[in-house]
Amino acid sequence: MNDTPALDVNEMSFEQAMAELEKVLGQLERGDVALDESITLYERGAALKKRCEAKLKEATEKVAAITLDSDGTPTGLTPVEGL
C-alpha cells in the first residue's frame, strides 16, 4: 500500500481498484506485516472493495446510434431500441 499512497480510491478504474485490492489481500494473507499496518491495510481493502462494487453496479446498458448528415459527418445520437 506504500507504492501508490497518492492515488485516490474514488478515482480508480475498476481494474486499478481490483489490482490494488489483490495486492492488499496478498499482503494480509502473507501475514508478514505489523499488526498496526494490517489494520490499515484492512481499511484500505474495504474502501477498494466498495469502489469495485460501485463500478460493478454501473452496469446499465445504453445503446445509441450516431446520426450522420448527407456528407457523413456525425450530427448527434439516436437511441436504438429492440436489438
Binding site: 485490492l21 489481500l25 494480509l28 494473507e29 494490517s38 489494520i39 481493502g45 472493495k49 469495485c52 460493478l56
Partner: peptide, 14 residues
C-alpha cells in the same frame, strides 16, 4: 463474486 470473495479473504486474513 471475486469482490465478495475478496472481502471474505480479507476478514479471514485479518
Amino acid at each position: 463474486a471475486w469482490v465478495d470473495q475478496a472481502e471474505a479473504r480479507m476478514s479471514t486474513a485479518l
